[in-house]
Design a binder for these strands. Structure first.
Lengths: 339, 339
DNA sequence: TCGTCACGCCGAACCGGTTCGACGCCTGTC
DNA sequence: GACAGGCGTCGAACCGGTTCGGCGTGACGA
């Protein structure tokens, strides 16, 4: 293994001079800099990450804590992960991926051992077990997902309340007066998936204000259960002319359900989902949707995290809770209700 | 930050004794061991990963190189990633996730800087640019996916040739004499996705042997293109009674295509796909399939990699190329052709 | 009673970087 | 011609672990 000592020797300078020539933190003559650069190239030198981390207390690695639950839609999580990973790399950080089911213990492990300069937590629950660990850790963190207590945390999430209102308003404006909202499975709620009831409660309230009947139900996460549920909902509420989906699996299942019933959107039924554009393209979902913007959220979280990591004063600045305003992507699946 | 020096002082011993008490690499009196353990617990000591890596030349981190191409099905990749990640953690390794588009450069970066003890390469292409870098690296590596030249590499992949033969034989046995095989998009092939032609060539050869007509076409990776393709294929080959899919997107799109045409499997058309069981459950695909076993492959790759990392003699043992035998998961979508 | 040996612990060196203080030399100034 | 000051370089210390060699103590056998 070639070390900075080898480079220094080849360039005929001391180790410290070689280090300064590479970092540029002190002025170095053009000639020496050249000799060092040549030696680096010739010997193929790359700094040892462990040694550098030890000396500088910076690892240039960000921990990414993802949780994969059986009843959630894994491909959706992937979008967040890629958003985080891409942004981190742009800012010269690598990603330590942690998928252990015991997120709190894993978080303690990687922070205590100083493997990472900061962490991004995905899929944050209302009362997330990882948060006490994060608050006690010396490294900063950023969340994607809104917990019950945001104190001393940087939090990024879609504005699910606004999303719920937007869905209802959009349908109301088109003339719909009876809607069905399919949320995530109740398990997700029990585990503290606050976004489910944030959207649902806001939608119910808005429906009340607008004088719209809204049937809100918890969904399923897998086929065929979710397909059967959609079918039975359409049976039970024949007067409903619009369907709101805060549930990726339901959105993915809906096309064949509609087909089977001989229905089409928006002629027979207006539909709005809540999922990312990437998701829509992958599964070719023809439904208009509230964009859940996983890439944007991942990007925002990493940017804020890196700001805190790199600037000492940013460490003590007040923490931010930032909501991304939902945007409705019109794919033409909503219209006035059939007469 | 609490160091092993703090622990040693609290326990009233030297740093080296504290280290030996924790590692157990030399005999230590029960009393001292107890005092050290107490000090560790009291102070909340965790070894600094960078310092340990520097001293031992082991990082306990495995690099995971994943490539996400626009025209491949990202959710499928996730299954491999999780298989690798879970197995690595069982063996006490963490995962450094690398998703850069320039995989070769990224690989050089993490190996040269000694951030990882070894790497797993996913989605390996016929003439993968990362392989020269891996061969030159001091760390061992394991591949998931078969390159053209496997020399001095540990390689794990599904036996796609056998999968192709199995698909054809299965259909032939049921009485089918004209089949359609939909592969991945041609882009994937051009990029060196050998598994596409490995399955296709073997299927064509087997069809020739069995006297079956096989129409092999490259597919699309997204809707609506893939749906339209399926439709036009069924139009063009009205005599085909069986459909073979080596293309996740096509499998996901098929249910609504069948619905639209008023067909059902296996009554009107027999269908076999090639995808993981997890994939089938997530999208509730009702089609029998060759299990692509991403979890098993990820697991095998990591186990072999860790073997090489941890045992000095394993470093020089001959490299392995191991194919997982395809298994047909019967979901009831194949039967004798309609009379 | 003395020598031997095993056990348990310590001190020092080392891993490969970074960084601080010091120092020599060259230039410019009065 | 002496001196101040800046530039470029070096030596040494440090980050926090691990590991090797050595040393003192006590038990044991001759």
């Amino acid at each position: 293994m070639v070390t900075i000592g080898d480079v220094a020797r080849a360039a005929g300078v001391s180790r410290s001079t070689a280090s300064y020539a590479l970092s540029g933190k002190r002025s170095i003559s053009a000639e020496v800099r050249q000799r060092v650069d040549d030696a680096v190239r010739e010997l193929g030198y790359t700094a040892n990450a462990g040694a550098r981390a030890l000396a500088t207390s910076e690892t240039m690695v960000i921990g990414l804590l993802a949780q994969f639950h059986e009843d959630e839609f894994a491909p959706a999580m992937l979008q967040y992960m890629l958003g985080v990973s891409d942004t981190a790399r742009e800012l010269d950080y690598d990603i330590l991926l942690v998928t252990e089911s015991d997120g709190a213990r894993a978080l303690r492990r990687i922070t205590d051992s100083r493997m990472v300069d900061g962490v991004v937590l995905l899929n944050v629950a209302e009362d997330d077990k990882r948060l006490p660990v994060l608050r006690a850790a010396p490294q900063p963190g950023a969340l994607v997902g809104l917990p019950g207590d945001c104190s001393s945390l940087d939090v990024f999430d879609l504005d699910f309340e606004e999303a719920g209102r937007m869905m209802v308003d959009h349908m109301h404006r088109l003339g719909h007066r009876e809607l069905i909202l399919v949320s995530q499975p109740e398990h997700v709620v029990e585990r503290g998936g606050a976004y489910v009831w944030r959207l649902q409660d806001a939608a119910l309230e808005q429906a009340r204000i607008r004088g719209v009947r809204l049937h809100a139900v918890f969904g399923e996460s897998k086929q065929p259960a979710v397909g059967q549920l959609l079918n039975s909902l359409l049976d039970t509420h024949p007067g409903a002319t619009g369907l709101l989906l805060n549930n990726e699996a339901a959105a993915a299942a809906l096309p064949s359900v509609l087909h089977a019933r001989g229905l089409s959107a928006p002629a027979d039924l207006s539909v709005i989902g809540r999922y990312s554009d990437e998701f829509a393209r992958t599964f070719s979902l023809p439904f208009s949707s509230i964009e859940s913007a996983p890439d944007r959220l991942g990007r925002m979280a990493v940017r804020q995290l890196v700001r805190r990591i790199e600037s000492p004063e940013a460490r003590n600045q007040p923490h931010v809770v930032r909501f991304v305003s939902p945007e409705l992507v019109d794919r033409g699946s909503t219209a006035a209700p059939p007469t």
